[in-house]
Design a protein around this nucleic acid. Structure first.
Lengths: 154, 154
DNA sequence: AGGCCAACGTTGGTGCGACCAACGATAGCG
DNA sequence: CGCTATCGTTGGTCGCACCAACGTTGGCCT
């Protein structure tokens, strides 16, 4: 149970004007979703942008910090902090790129791959909890609509 | 045009693993939507939680600060700051509730009503921009799904 | 009546995420 | 060679959500 005080996140009594407004609903949904998943994820040892970074390296191979950031829409300066954490957990390694000494070559470790699949399971679990009330069709609908919203057909 | 540097919000190159994950898509969608609307709204003189508060008072009439916060899922302490701003803009008035001296009776001013309808127009414009690629049916679908996500069982 | 608990508004502080400015180092190109 | 751009890094700002504590006030119970 959350509901210490303060917010209570009832929000069923919000003005009708707000229900039906996409930007409002998106904000609320994102807040609730993150709140719901965070509990699951932090208990799995996952922080900040861990998952996105690990998934990016896993899919595209070792890359420079700036490139990872560009793929994820994360600022270079914020990437530094994330990678510091990931490195101190032993999930990634940073070494100077031999072909361009400005770049760091960020690579996954074995522990990093293990963490990624642990996070995969934790996220799947959290999403299931978030979407209990939805049929598979509806989940696909939601994902499809959100994908188009995030990535407008160029 | 934003794209000063840093983020660039391309994110078309994000790993496939992330596309299809609700919590990730929700976060991105909310970020993009807010970013898109904020530009419109700040130019209309709207800040922070202005719209939600004004809309709440407009629909339910004058109310205590804590009640507005409860309806919107906003902490009491944050409400204070929002109402300070709204008051200094002349959009609301605070007076002590005569029946319960703990409460403040927060009421809309004429200027507040005017601001609310200005914000209404600005938001409608922003949402149209956000949802250009969507048919009316799809917009309704999206809103319906998000509503159920925000407002789970009963 | 008195005593206890809950709610109110307010202050102050925390943490997180996004963003921006600047630096030294390095690469590419004219 | 200079000029410009990119890289990683540091440090700082802003907004939002959250929490703890306080003094005030109301409601309730015995």
């Amino acid at each position: 149970m959350i509901s210490h005080d303060s917010c209570e996140q009832d929000q069923s009594g919000a003005p009708r004007r707000l229900w039906g407004m996409t930007f409002w609903l998106l904000g609320r949904a994102a807040r609730n979703a993150q709140q719901l998943t965070q509990e699951q994820l932090t208990s799995a040892g996952m922080r900040r942008g861990f998952y996105g970074v690990l998934a990016t390296i896993a899919e595209f191979g070792p890359a420079a910090q700036a490139e990872i950031g560009r793929r994820l829409g994360i600022d270079r300066s914020d990437m530094v902090a994330i990678l510091n954490d990931l490195e101190s957990e032993g999930f990634i390694t940073r070494e100077q790129d031999s072909t361009d000494r400005r770049r760091n070559r960020v690579a996954l470790t074995r522990a990093g791959r293990g963490a990624l699949s642990r996070f995969d399971r934790a996220i799947a679990e959290a999403e299931d909890k978030l979407l209990t009330a939805f049929t598979l069709d509806e989940r696909a609908q939601l994902v499809g609509l959100l994908e188009r919203l995030v990535q407008p057909p160029q």
